[in-house]
Design a binder for these strands. Sequence first.
DNA 1: GTGCGTGGTTACCCCAAGGTGAGCGAGCAC
DNA 2: GTGCTCGCTCACCTTGGGGTAACCACGCAC
Lengths: 120, 120
Amino acid sequence: MATLNRPGTADGHACGIDTAMEVIGGRWKVLILWALREHPLRRFGELRRLLPGITEKVLASHLREMEADGVVRRVSYDEVPPRVEYSLTEDGIRLNDALEPLAAWGRDRSTGPRSRDEPA
Amino acid sequence: MATLNRPGTADGHACGIDTAMEVIGGRWKVLILWALREHPLRRFGELRRLLPGITEKVLASHLREMEADGVVRRVSYDEVPPRVEYSLTEDGIRLNDALEPLAAWGRDRSTGPRSRDEPA
DNA sequence: GTGCGTGGTTACCCCAAGGTGAGCGAGCAC
DNA sequence: GTGCTCGCTCACCTTGGGGTAACCACGCAC
């Protein structure tokens, strides 16, 4: 997706961070990752219920992209009504781990003292 | 900015990751962060030259948002021609540090063996 | 006077990500 | 038959982030 001229790629490529940003660069991607970590092996409908507000279209397209990116595994059973189960791959788990410091940073600034640099 | 109903905020709020994503959720933000880490205390024009492809408008608006988010410090001198210097705040430095595992993940998957989960 | 260089702002446009709502295909309950 | 479930797909529309380009004020060099 987004095969536009990657910024920072001019000088070779920035640092690998852009690669990661492409993978998690979707409104719901990190939340899907998080949901799949806390609730492994979920079905489509369960995932949708875990992410209030997401639409089927967006969930489906995000899951397909994440599958193509190798962070999500999709297993569909030939049943009726259809059953599909999603889980994290090893790479997805490692991505989730790599996201933790960022989450910690966000948590820290939400709860921590607000008197470091910003006046308000 | 973006006071839309945050996904994941329904259940309290996801994990702090969304906070971080809001701060770095701009096409060039992480690259600005990176540039400012490798070249501390840069002027507007220098920054623009460090980020080939970025436009003045986008650089200016991103810098303002990042200043409002408390990750970038802006110091302007009352001279002519005008001089403004940008640098990272403590929070910005910590954000950059928190980004490193993500960069490592991206670097690893770019260079590492491509035979873990994805077939190609 | 003209031009240059600085660090922006303003107005406008564009396109892709995301949202909306409908439909589908197969089997089962009734 | 009708309607329901499940996991999508399709067609359409809207939103806003980002891109384009012109302009500004100020001093200096010419």
